[in-house]
Computed example of a mutant assay.
Amino acid sequence: MTAEFSVENTLKQAAFKLQEAGSESPSLDAAVLLCHALNKPRSFLFTWPDKILDSEQITQFEQRLIRRLQGEPVAYIIGEREFWSMPLKVSPTTLIPRPDTERLVEIALDKSVLIDGPILDLGTGTGAIALALASELPQRQVIGIDLMPEAQALATENAQRLGISNARFLSGSWFSPVEAEAKFGLIVSNPPYIDENDPHLSQGDVRFEPLSALVAPDNGLADIKHITEHAKQFLLDQGWLMFEHGYQQGDAVRAIFLSQGYDQVETLKDYGNNDRVTFGRFVSK
């Protein structure tokens, strides 16, 4: 093999191809894929830029690169995504955890000091939100629910891999697996909230993600309405309900909370200064 197949040149060539294909982070994508193909940490790339790759390593990398050039998300290719500094296993049956969702975790942690009780995460997917909260609040019990049994199994595996013992996961539609008398101090959710006609569904990574976890009827608000209505019977007095939602949905989601009688309703912004999380407090009459 020649210097053409060095770590440095392989990364440069791959980054150029990825940039041409429209990747928003071509150099990072190339580095992550090469590390995965080589089973090496990122530090290896910087320490050994002149290292010549053998034919098997090149084949492994090119197989991953082709998938990314076709638009498949890096997280699905390598089977992992970091969230809240935790390496989470991901699969095409679940959404890929995103940095904006960490904003929901931050707000939930702020509210957790105001009320005790277990925490419920609806539509848990990989378990990202539930596991982040469980890791920060080891004295609290956290339950995550997902409609898809595959997602429940994946979230359970992530909890085991991370050694988080105060989170457990159930499968079913929204509140259906919850015991009728159960009460929670916090209910959090990143539900489907995209309108089925949204043009963004045909762009970028979301093309590969499950539509059932993305799209909701009624302009993307149907699941938020359902959860907001039914959460009241499962919240402790003074308990909090909060959602991640679309950047244009703040007004609509606040109106849903107010129509159901929630108190202290507010929308907070994400790291990009877009409306992202709306919450309200349940006050029993």
Rank of each mutant, 00 (worst) to 15 (best):
79 G>D: 01
96 I>D: 11
27 S>C: 12
119 I>D: 09
32 V>Y: 05
98 R>Q: 04
218 D>V: 05
119 I>L: 14
130 A>Q: 00
3 A>N: 15
267 T>H: 00
228 T>F: 04
203 Q>W: 06
48 W>K: 14
108 A>F: 02
120 L>H: 13
188 V>R: 02
195 D>W: 00
126 T>K: 01
235 L>D: 05
85 S>H: 08
279 F>N: 03
25 S>T: 15
162 L>E: 04
79 G>Y: 02
11 L>V: 08
149 P>R: 07
273 N>T: 08
206 V>Q: 10
134 A>L: 06
64 R>F: 14
154 L>C: 11
119 I>V: 15
230 H>D: 13
18 L>P: 09
117 G>Y: 09
172 G>D: 12
285 K>Y: 14
194 I>V: 10
88 L>E: 03
9 N>T: 04
285 K>R: 15
281 R>C: 15
237 D>N: 15
62 E>L: 05
9 N>H: 12
192 P>K: 09
209 E>M: 08
246 G>P: 09
270 D>R: 06
121 D>K: 04
254 R>Q: 15
165 S>L: 10
256 I>K: 04
234 F>S: 07
178 V>H: 01
163 G>Y: 07
192 P>W: 09
217 P>C: 02
170 L>C: 13
41 P>E: 10
19 Q>C: 07
28 L>I: 14
14 A>R: 03
60 Q>W: 06
134 A>K: 06
141 Q>W: 07
86 M>H: 14
18 L>H: 10
170 L>W: 06
145 I>D: 06
59 T>K: 13
7 V>G: 10
43 S>F: 09
207 R>P: 09
220 G>H: 00
125 G>Y: 03
172 G>N: 11
118 P>W: 04
96 I>V: 13
46 F>G: 15
196 E>C: 06
232 K>N: 05
120 L>R: 07
153 A>K: 13
62 E>T: 10
13 Q>I: 11
113 V>L: 15
54 D>E: 12
123 G>A: 07
176 S>K: 09
234 F>G: 10
129 I>N: 05
107 I>H: 07
120 L>S: 10
33 L>W: 02
12 K>R: 14
192 P>L: 04
129 I>R: 01
130 A>C: 01
210 P>F: 07
162 L>A: 07
232 K>D: 06
247 Y>R: 01
69 L>A: 02
104 L>V: 01
226 H>K: 09
174 W>M: 04
5 F>T: 14
229 E>Q: 14
247 Y>M: 06
